[in-house]
């Protein structure tokens, strides 16, 4: 598998980084659908793995600086309240 140059997630602002998370997450989703009907397409599979890595890295970078995206990002320093008492995705402030 080809090596992808590392992305500068830490240089991005909050909105830009969130868009990067969403773009990579959407790419993963779209590749999953494609692979469901083309399960032996090696190019699609390697694209999925690259995008999956970017998605994970961007999500981790976002969570570290701006708050958890999943329960896996919740930590004792910020506590549960930082997860449960901050804007939910259907609020304008979260987008």
């Amino acid at each position: 598998m080809m090596k992808k140059p590392s992305k500068s997630w830490d240089a991005m602002g909050k909105d830009e980084l969130l868009r990067a998370v969403q773009a990579n997450q959407f790419a993963v989703r779209d590749l999953m659908l494609y692979l469901d009907t083309h399960p032996t397409d090696a190019n699609a599979l390697s694209a999925l793995m690259l995008r999956r890595q970017d998605y994970a890295d961007a999500a981790d970078a976002y969570a570290k600086r701006f708050g958890a995206l999943t329960v896996m990002h919740v930590n004792d320093e910020d506590g549960w309240v930082a997860w449960s008492n901050t804007p939910w995705p259907w609020e304008k402030e979260a987008n």
Binding site: W83, S84, N85, T86, W88, W90
Partner: peptide, 15 residues
């Protein structure tokens, strides 16, 4: 129901 729950903690609970 969760969208109009007044407390965010409860929006989380419903989610």
């Amino acid at each position: 129901q969760r969208y109009t729950m007044p407390l965010r903690e409860l929006q989380g609970l419903l989610t």
